[in-house]
């Protein structure tokens, strides 16, 4: 190991543990504090920008403390801070003081999904008309669009989300229990929409199948088995209408290739 790598490891250890006495060759304590604060504060700010509604629900001080702890224990893996905080909702789930407030992590997951979807690659959208007009729809390689995401919320946060979006304030939870949300980018807008269990099942089945022939037929069967034929058909309409499906191309998948 190079002397530089050894010095860097000791420097990082000193940043992570302000209580420990740092080696003299790492520099003066006051200067180390500046680097330590810069790292912590910049990551806390990145989380505050990514999760504004979560911040409202937790309050400024609690959010700052939770984000600071998360930043200390979960440094980013790369410098793209827009993708930082993938595990923040899971982290909040594990905080004992939030045991009776798990809806906060539902909102946190919706915010994360919205951000991911807004930065995702564009893929050709499957229009309902194209599917309806095709002589053999199952030969189309139908899959989920990259600029979409499905979030399973454990509470009915529909009214809460709407209030946070519109007024930046909290609202009571609904009484319908857990529900799935489809987060979709259309043009410049990213919108989370609550969807039926059949729609969620169909989306998950298409996502799991990947872009291959017969994926649509198989996914519809899975959704129909669980929720009935009518609900599965309606679910396909929902996913198409939301713009959450992509069409790769007509043709055969790799397994069909001799």
């Amino acid at each position: 190991m190079s002397a530089l790598a050894d010095w860097q490891r000791r420097f990082v250890a000193a940043l992570r543990d302000p209580g420990a006495e740092a080696d003299a060759d790492l520099g003066q304590a006051a200067g180390l504090d500046v680097y330590r604060n810069n790292v912590r504060q910049s990551l806390t700010e990145a989380l505050a920008i990514a999760f504004p509604h979560t911040r409202v629900l937790l309050g400024e001080r609690y959010f700052a403390a939770a984000a600071g702890d998360y930043a200390r224990d979960h440094p980013p893996g790369d410098p793209r801070l827009a993708s930082y905080g993938t595990g923040f909702a899971d982290f909040l789930d594990d905080l004992p003081p939030l045991a009776d407030h798990r809806y906060v992590s539902d909102i946190c997951r919706l915010e994360r999904a919205r951000l991911d979807v807004s930065h995702a690659a564009e893929t050709p959208l499957l229009e309902a008309e194209r599917l309806a007009a095709h002589p053999d729809p199952e030969s189309l390689r139908v899959t989920t669009r990259a600029a979409t995401s499905l979030v399973a919320c454990r509470h009915d946060v529909e009214e809460l989300w709407r209030h946070l979006e519109r007024d930046g304030v909290a609202a009571p939870l609904g009484e319908r229990g857990g529900m799935a949300w489809l987060v979709v980018r259309r043009g410049a807008r990213v919108e989370p929409l609550p969807v039926s269990p059949a729609s969620a099942e169909l989306y998950r089945a298409l996502e799991a199948a990947g872009p291959r022939n017969q994926a649509l037929g198989m996914a519809l069967s899975i959704s129909a088995d669980a929720h009935g034929q009518a609900a599965a058909g309606e679910a396909l309409g929902t996913l198409l209408g939301a713009g959450s499906l992509a069409m790769i191309e007509d043709g055969r998948d790799e397994e069909d290739t001799p």
């Binding site: 990082v12 680097y35 810069n38 440094p75 980013p76 893996g77 790369d78 410098p79 801070l81």
Partner: peptide, 10 residues
């Protein structure tokens, strides 16, 4: 800013 797979944002 990077060491052992972690990124330190400074």
């Amino acid at each position: 800013s990077r060491l052992d797979g972690d990124y330190y944002n400074d």
